[in-house]
Design a protein around this nucleic acid. Structure first.
Length: 481
RNA sequence: GGCGCUAUCGUCUAAGGGUUAGGACGGAGCCCUCUCAAGGCUCAAAUACGGGUUCGAAUCCCGUUAGCGCUACCA
């Protein structure tokens, strides 16, 4: 039975690297019909914040993948205390009465004291119990078995065989002087208790794993499999940090930028993993089907962004691909609130008619505001009348085209086929090329040169608004001459 | 400093002893076309460096360099 967990600590927003770890765990669980566990690693009371927890949940909810079980370490302190007791009783742990600041002082430069404090490690049981009973503060440390020295090994599903001498592993803390567990302790106790079979997490934990193997052994737990993931880094090679790189490190940024969650999930999957064929755009189902640990690679991946352009171009492209393959009705549903937020008056029917015209012209949901404005606004924003003048033409030509359009569009059927027929005939009659006839009309109706196909656009904008806008353009041209 | 991990186009990546080192994004160009997109085609662009092993190395080994991680009573 596959059981995996994602274990964020609520000390910040949901980082995109964490999001990817969550996604890989989720994919692995779903691919293997296993269980996905969300565990909040909130053992550091000092640093945890409620806002952070909220933003992590918000990010996770947006990703829209879900999970099966949920735990909070802050509600499980009794388990960690019991486990610590047992470890102490078995001699696998010892009390270290060194004051916190003293330890920092002499272990500072990676010199002698970093492995352990030999006096503390050697303290007799009686002495240790006596000082503890007297209320002297201590941290509980794991007694790394160093005599005789041995090599700790495990096989990582991504990085292969790993080994490290116990001579290079320090006596790490299990319990702080407050009695609260450290990350290593709580994490291992929980992984054992929750019967996590596969630990999939960031590569920053690769060397921590030697400690965890030792601890898990001491706890008498069945050894899980480990799979470490390459890290996501910034273009400057540094790890992604909010301070240095800004909001690009938070998943909520992509939601707010108008990304589709499954497109963003797709993008994150391609950072450090690939399906071994040339597929790039993949649906959630395809990802679940294709995901295996064998496809994960070992080197860190750069998220490609710059200060001017904070979104990775490939993410943008993938998003446009996912938008394009959405059924128009579904896209219209998603676009409606976007337009409404922009202050446009939008009905379901209107959204349904506009959407197909812009579907392949937007890369994000938010793009729809600027791309479709002229379908919704009462009055066009002022534009440069020079735009009305066609290629190899002049103001006079624009005027003739527009006046003819006014005449031709005033009555008759107002469907795009009928409108196209009449407009093409009109162009022929005036001796104009199609483009020369259409550009003034497009600019008059849309307020700019770049817009969706003209006839469909005219049909959706409607006869009344089209005639008004063309008449307005005629007026402007006449004023100028 | 110690220990560990990593190194293919600008970026994401494929190839895991024999390929003109493949794909994608981005860039350039062409085609299509009522504009813009979308789409199609083409081009530029990479095996960090030095040694081995081998008939043959991007691929295996060693070293160098660089980057990253751990080295907290953070996670």
């Amino acid at each position: 039975m596959v059981r995996v967990r994602f274990a964020p600590s609520p000390t910040g927003y949901l980082h995109i690297g964490s999001a990817r770890t969550f996604i890989f765990n989720w994919l692995f669980a779903r691919h293997n019909k296993g269980t996905m566990i969300l565990r909040i690693d909130d053992t550091d009371v000092e640093r945890n914040t409620e806002e952070s927890l909220e933003s992590i949940f918000e990010g996770l909810r947006w990703l829209d993948l879900g999970w099966d079980e949920e735990y909070r370490q802050s509600e499980r302190f009794h388990l960690y205390r019991e486990a610590a007791q047992a470890l102490l009783a078995k001699g696998c742990a010892y009390r270290d009465f060194t004051p916190a600041d003293a330890k920092a002082a002499d272990a500072g430069d990676g010199k002698a004291g970093w492995l352990c404090h030999p006096e503390m490690r050697a303290l007799s049981r009686e002495e240790s119990d006596r000082r503890a009973a007297a209320g002297e503060p201590f941290v509980l440390r794991f007694r790394v078995p160093r005599e005789p020295e041995r090599t700790v090994t495990f096989r990582d599903r991504v990085y292969g065989e790993q080994s490290k001498s116990t001579a290079d592993i320090e006596d790490f803390a299990l319990l702080r002087s407050t009695g609260a567990p450290t990350y290593h302790h709580a994490s291992c106790v929980d992984d054992a208790e929750m019967r996590i079979r596969h630990i999939i997490r960031g590569q920053d934990h690769l060397t921590n794993t030697f400690k965890h193997v030792l601890l898990l052994e001491a706890l008498g737990a069945e050894m899980p499999e480990f799979a470490h993931l390459p890290l996501l880094i910034a273009p400057d090679g540094a790890k992604l940090s909010k301070r240095r790189h800004g909001p690009v490190v938070s998943v909520l940024t992509y939601r707010d930028a108008g990304f589709l969650p499954h497109a963003y999930v797709n993008f994150l999957c391609l950072l450090g993993w690939n399906p071994k064929d040339d597929r790039e755009k993949m649906t959630r189902e395809e990802l679940v089907e294709a995901f295996t640990l064998e496809g994960v690679n070992r080197s860190n991946a750069v998220v490609n962004f710059t200060e001017e352009d904070p979104i990775d171009p490939k993410a943008l492209w993938l998003n446009s691909q996912h938008i394009y393959s959405l059924p128009a009705e579904r896209l219209a549903e998603l676009l409606e609130p976007v337009w409404r937020r922009a202050g446009y008056e939008v009905t379901r029917e209107k959204a349904l008619r506009v959407t197909p015209l812009i579907q392949e012209r937007i890369k994000t949901l938010n793009d729809a505001v600027a791309v479709a404005d002229f379908f919704f606004v009462k009055e066009l924003a002022p534009y440069d009348t020079a735009e009305l003048i066609p290629q190899k033409g002049d103001g006079g030509m624009a005027l003739r085209a527009l006046e003819k359009a006014l005449e031709v569009l005033a009555d008759g059927e107002f469907t795009h086929q009928a409108v196209e027929e009449r407009l093409r005939a009109a162009a022929a009659e005036l001796g104009l090329k199609a483009g020369q006839m259409f550009q003034p009309i497009r600019v008059a109706v849309c307020g700019r040169k770049n817009a969706p196909p003209l006839f469909e656009t005219l049909e959706v904008v409607g006869r009344k608004a089209c005639l008004e806008r063309i008449a307005r353009a005629v007026e402007l041209l006449k004023q100028e001459s």
